[in-house]
């Protein structure tokens, strides 16, 4: 255990936690915005897979990481438009439509990978960008300020999402259509347009999450996400639909994962209970949820399609 409490190992664990948390955080923030508008999107994992594949493929073809990020954003927008049309304009059942998107993303990314790539080939990874001065701070400099731009962006989006939801007229519209769309409608707020925009933002962030995942790893393989998108949806509930809470959830999940891996490496967790310990992130997260359980209700109109009739 003493091996764990050395500064280099703790720093490495924190860095690992933040890397692991990045895709979850991006996807969960997007899902938070969508759910606050009353739309549940279970297709996050599918969108992440699609954007992960296409941004991987872009790097493979062009070697341009930023083009890859743009492609991921575009995939997110396209899937957002699709999901928006299905759920907002056709008022389809959100749960099952989201699963449809997931299955589509899983299958299509797999198909494209086999057709276009075949054998996994490594590509360049997101470069580390040191933030001047801050990066040199002992202990916290490395895990916090020697990361990639997408990680910085993910964490910058936490206060930005908070501001968007709580301080802007658009955020007010989002919150009201998520709680009582009839009320918003009666004041001339377009429920359709607001939800569509929220879905678009949510899916774009899911797209970014896919890019962050694949560009951190520098390689793609079928079903790369392994259900990360579903964990991201769960983290929204964990975070009680608040950006800060969602960040806490993503960090906790990442930290427990990183700690478990570190302890396995150090032999603190023996091989014999290794598989059991793999459940720790889920158990700790659920445990924290129970302990911290605040009486926060889901947006009242979550999953409920809106129509005037």
């Amino acid at each position: 255990m003493n091996d764990f409490f050395t500064s280099s190992v703790l720093v490495a664990t924190a860095a690992s936690a933040i890397r692991l948390a990045t895709p979850y955080l991006l996807a969960s923030l997007g899902e938070t915005i969508g759910q606050r508008s009353g739309v549940l999107n279970l297709g996050v994992d599918g969108v992440m897979l699609l954007s992960a594949f296409f941004s991987y493929w872009t790097v493979l073809q062009t070697g341009n990481l930023w083009l890859a990020v743009v492609v991921a954003l575009a995939v997110g927008v396209i899937m957002g438009v699709l999901y928006g049309i299905i759920t907002v304009f056709f008022e389809a059942t959100q749960g099952i439509s989201g699963i449809g998107i997931f299955i589509f993303g899983l299958g299509f990314s797999d198909l494209m990978f086999r057709q276009q790539v075949g054998t996994p080939k490594p590509v360049q990874r997101l470069p580390r960008v040191d933030i001047p001065v801050l990066a040199d701070i002992p202990y916290i400099g490395e895990p916090l300020f020697q990361r990639s731009l997408l990680t910085y962006l993910a964490f910058a989006l936490v206060p930005l999402t908070f501001l968007l939801l709580n301080k802007t007229t658009f955020g007010l519209n989002i919150r009201s259509v998520g709680e009582n769309p009839q009320a918003a409608d009666s004041l001339g707020v377009s429920v359709e347009r607001t939800r569509f925009a929220a879905i678009l933002i949510g899916n774009t962030l899911a797209g970014l999450a896919g890019a962050a995942l694949v560009l951190q790893l520098g390689i793609f393989q079928p079903n790369l996400t392994q259900g990360m998108g579903f964990i991201a949806v769960a983290l929204v509930y964990f975070g009680a639909w608040r950006p800060l809470g969602v960040m806490g959830g993503a960090l906790l999940y990442g930290l427990v994962n990183a700690t478990v891996l570190q302890w396995k490496s150090l032999g603190i967790i023996p091989v014999s209970i290794s598989d059991l310990a793999g459940m720790a992130p889920a158990i700790v997260t659920i445990g924290a949820l129970i302990l911290l359980a605040r009486r926060v209700n889901a947006p009242a109109a979550l999953t409920k399609p809106f129509s005037r009739h």
């Binding site: 091996d3 280099s8 190992v9 720093v11 490495a12 664990t13 860095a15 690992s16 890397r19 692991l20 895709p23 995942l213 951190q216 790893l217 390689i219 393989q221 790369l224 392994q226 990360m228 994962n257 990183a258 891996l261 570190q262 396995k264 490496s265 150090l266």
Partner: peptide
Amino acid sequence: DVALAAEAAEAHLAN
């Protein structure tokens, strides 16, 4: 889980 495998490797490097 590719991401977890990557971080497992990172943990070994840290050690």
